[in-house]
Design a protein around this nucleic acid. Structure first.
Length: 163
DNA sequence: GATAGGTGGCCAGTTACATCA
DNA sequence: AGTGATGTAACTGGCCACCTA
């Protein structure tokens, strides 16, 4: 296993679990990696350059190993924890987007199936009415009576019923 | 070898804040 | 200037995998 005792400035590496355990253990809320500069640092927006580099890195690999995280953090002058959080949030956004895309796809699919179902229902009604008047049924061109592969197979397997 | 405890990573959900219309 | 909507940085708790004593 990798160890993170490599002197990260604020010990933010691997903070997600150890820090949360620490927080829950002593009841400390929102310590925000208290390293002296208390309260001064609220949430800050990442710069466009930082975001761009993170995006580029995310395109290459959407997860980071500890080493990559450190390198990236150093490069961007961020804390490793910030990089880690950014990747987590980015993965969540990607997943959400993909879910939306999938949802749209399923809606389209549903619409198509509904239309197809209506069409088949109409066809069924038509065929039933034809069946009720056999003289018309026999006049129906063969092309009108083509069956889908499943039905065709079933029809062929069906034992011939003699009247 | 089985087991408990520690650690770190990821995820889903939430909160807090910045920005914009 | 005030405000609601939206985006996102950061947090929280839970779960899992791995390591070690």
């Amino acid at each position: 296993m990798d160890t993170y005792d490599d002197g990260t400035e604020d010990g933010a590496i691997g903070s997600s679990s150890s820090e949360k355990r620490q927080r829950s253990a002593d009841g400390e809320e929102r310590s925000d990696e208290d390293d002296g500069e208390t309260a001064a640092k609220k949430k800050l927006r990442l710069s466009k350059e930082q975001s761009a580099v993170l995006e580029e890195s995310f395109r290459e690999h959407n997860t980071l190993n500890p080493k990559q995280k450190l390198v990236l953090a150093k490069k961007l002058n961020l804390k490793p924890r910030q990089v880690e959080v950014w990747f987590q949030n980015r993965r969540a956004r990607t997943k959400l987007k993909q879910t939306e895309v999938d949802c749209e796809l399923l809606k389209k699919c549903c619409k198509n199936l509904t239309e197809e179902n209506r069409r088949l229902q109409r066809e069924l009604v038509e065929l039933r009415s034809l069946k009720r008047s056999p003289h018309l049924f026999m006049q129906v061109p063969a092309t009108t009576l083509t069956l889908c592969p499943t039905c065709e197979t079933a029809r062929q397997r069906r034992p011939q019923i003699r009247s």
